[in-house]
Design a protein around this nucleic acid. Structure first.
Length: 678
DNA sequence: TAGGCTTTAAACAGAT
DNA sequence: GATCTGTTTAAAGCCT
């Protein structure tokens, strides 16, 4: 009856349960996990795009299959004769839906339409991903609406029952308490749903159609203040974690073992979602909270509450717990229907968990972002980092075809290797990073400041995204971050794995690269120690790397001008922002922070480098620059380079525009490095 | 197109 | 002998 449509799948026709599980494997396993990508693949870009498009295809097929299963299950539940069967659905003529329309209007596309789109190969991988996200969002929305509707009906029923029971005076307090609990439950449910919908709307994945029935909870969160949102989020997350901890106690069906004949039975549940251990417990989120609020009940059961069976789609009224148990055993025995319903519920949970995970990450990024901004002394490194961001963004914009060139991002935009624009890194954006990653020329990346990594530290720590820095830069950074400016090889390894999730995989590859770089570059000096050998950085040698002519090179000059174009509005926006928040640019007070002290030294260091290089390019400096053009590294030499002065606001300009681009675009070949600086 | 740089892979040797 | 560390070579791709 069922057959996996994955081109790469060897799955034979089998039961719905196996199909579902198999699809979970396909849909929930990122392509990157299936095919570990080397740091720098030798495949051509076209090959990478093709592989990626194929992965997206697989993903979309899985989503479509899941959607079909959902539809089938709904039809089974409704048990309405005459409904179109999935088979019949399959035989529907494939509609010629314009791709543009399909991309713009959030409507569920039939599998045939999707297949046609895929076969025509008219969509880029990015477009396919957007399309998939829209489909997922719509599915989630439908599930949420259905879930909400059921819960509301349930609550109304329970309220009616309680009103009836409330005629007995001695039960009045308890009924009032229960009513309050119901209302709280409804409120929490609404808030949870609202969170999801808001997040979907934020992502642009969900558009509330004018004709679409307005969600009753729509206005609920509109007036929420951040504190309330935080409280809500805390409730949601705590409830979730509580469920995770208690999830093992529930006698739920072990769906992961129902498909023992599957090709990968044991790892499916693990692969499809890291949160899959909950095994569907999140789906009973509200009911469980409700049951927790009534723990005094001697017969508490996740599927039973307030006299109603909480089995999805059941809502049968059970007067007491015993009758509920009878009902549970009779109506929800282990059969195909119950199993299928469980899988549907599992899928709902999967969707919710995925969304929750995304929102969690978004929240984390937001909090990180706001924390950096709100704690002012720590915000002082921003100027240095900001410019680095701009510089790297520029490199990313040049590297990424989907990026917006010459569009300064928000001042606190994280330095992401590829993604542009959004300040908040989502899992979605993270997933788009890997396959389209391109190698970043060291020209753009080399001296990484501490702030470069620091600001995105959490991102790189958690996301398996290749940092847009060369090995040499990273090694140098690791060494310079050490207290004694020297590290053993193993310590360098540890720094890599500690700072970058990306380097927690394929250790042999990148460790070899690290060793290779250490040996290859003269800037890394091996120093024999008592305990062994440590590696240090010869800054002069490091700065000498990649000597590029800058004088008379129009492209480099253009680069510098474009960098200037970045920095001008950036600095203006930054200064305005800081002025608005009464933030000093670079005060001595801010330098009290040890981190800032390092940054200050980094500034001096880079200023020295700039001066060093500009001294060799004096002939390139043109007269008549505006003050803003002081950002130009050639012009930096005209600015006071006293480290103390560098701590002043001017350092924002000079340092901010001393980008790595310039360091390595200077001419070292024809003109010797300024001996004074050496 | 040439040359430089980076990455990746691999081989090899010495030390632990 | 296995593993780690360090060096070297080579190839491929990207950038200038």
């Amino acid at each position: 009856m069922f057959q996996c449509v994955f081109s790469s799948s060897v799955l034979q026709p089998h039961s719905t349960s196996c199909l579902f599980k198999h699809l979970f494997y396909h849909s929930a396993t990122p392509a990157s996990q299936k095919q570990p990508e080397p740091i720098y693949s030798k495949k051509t870009e076209i090959q990478r795009q093709t592989v990626r498009a194929h992965s997206v295809k697989l993903f979309i097929f899985s989503a479509l299959q899941v959607a079909r299963q959902l539809l089938l299950q709904q039809q089974q539940q409704q048990q309405v004769s005459g409904l179109k069967s999935p088979k019949r659905n399959d035989k529907q003529p494939a509609l010629q839906v314009p791709v543009s329309v399909a991309m713009m209007t959030p409507q569920v596309i039939t599998p045939q339409q999707m297949q046609q789109i895929l076969q025509q190969q008219v969509l880029s991988p990015q477009q396919l991903q957007v399309l998939l996200q829209q489909q997922q969002a719509l599915m989630l929305q439908q599930q949420l609406q259905e879930f909400y509707k059921k819960q509301q009906e349930q609550l109304q029923l329970q309220l009616l029952q309680q009103q009836h029971a409330g005629k007995q005076p001695k039960e009045q307090p308890q009924v009032a308490t229960q009513q309050l609990a119901f209302q709280q439950q409804l409120l929490q449910m609404q808030q949870l749903q609202q969170q999801h919908l808001l997040s979907l709307q934020r992502q642009g994945l969900l558009t509330i159609q004018p004709g679409q029935p307005a969600l009753p909870l729509q206005p609920l969160a509109q007036g929420m203040i951040p504190t309330e949102l935080q409280q809500l989020w805390k409730e949601v997350t705590s409830a979730h974690s509580a469920e995770e901890t208690t999830g093992s106690n529930h006698s739920s069906l072990d769906l992961t073992t129902t498909c023992v004949s599957s090709s990968a039975p044991s790892k499916t549940s693990l692969i499809m979602n890291p949160h899959a251990s909950t095994n569907g417990q999140l789906s009973v989120h509200a009911p469980k909270r409700e049951s927790l609020s009534h723990e005094e009940h001697p017969h508490s059961h996740p599927l039973y509450g307030h006299g109603v069976c909480k089995w999805p789609g059941c809502e049968a009224v059970c007067e007491d717990f015993q009758s509920f148990l009878k009902h549970l055993n009779s109506e929800h025995a282990l059969d195909d229907r119950s199993t299928a319903q469980c899988r549907v519920q599992m899928q709902v949970v999967q969707q919710l968990e995925l969304q929750l995970a995304k929102d969690k990450e978004r929240l984390q990024a937001m909090m990180t972002h706001l924390h950096v901004k709100s704690t002012e002394p720590k915000a002082a490194p921003q100027p240095l980092n900001l410019v680095s961001s701009v510089t790297l963004s520029k490199s990313a914009s040049e590297a990424s075809p989907q990026s917006l060139p010459h569009t300064p991002t928000t001042p606190t935009a994280p330095i992401t290797p590829v993604t542009q624009g959004p300040s908040v890194i989502t899992t979605t954006s993270m997933h788009t990073v890997g396959p389209i990653r391109r190698r970043y020329s060291d020209k753009y990346n080399v001296p990484i400041s501490s702030a470069d990594i620091a600001q995105n530290q959490e991102f790189y720590k958690n996301a398996e995204v290749r940092p847009p820095f060369t090995y040499a830069s990273l090694i140098r950074q690791a060494i310079l971050e050490s207290p004694e400016k020297q590290l053993t090889l193993n310590e360098i390894y540890n720094w890599f794995t500690r700072m970058f999730a990306y380097f927690r995989r394929n250790a042999a590859t990148w460790k070899n690269a690290v060793r290779h770089n250490l040996s290859l570059h003269k800037c890394f000096v091996r120093v024999e120690n008592v305990k062994g050998a440590v590696w240090t950085v010869d800054e002069v040698e490091f700065q000498k790397r990649r000597p590029q002519k800058i004088s008379g090179n129009p492209s480099l000059i253009k680069n510098m001008q474009s960098s200037h174009a970045y920095c001008t509005p950036l600095n203006a926006a930054l200064q305005a922002s800081m002025a608005e928040n009464s933030i000093p640019l670079y005060t001595t007070a801010s330098m009290g922070n040890p981190t800032l002290g390092n940054l200050a030294s980094a500034i001096r260091e880079e200023l020295n480098g700039a001066m060093e290089h500009t001294n060799s390019n004096e002939s390139d400096s043109s007269p008549g620059r505006s003050p803003m053009q002081a950002v130009h590294p050639v012009h930096v030499k005209e600015e006071p380079l006293d480290p103390e002065e560098a701590e002043g606001p001017l350092s924002l300009v000079t340092t901010a525009n001393h980008s790595p681009d310039f360091d390595h675009d200077r001419d070292y070949e024809d003109e010797p490095v300024n001996e004074d600086m050496e």
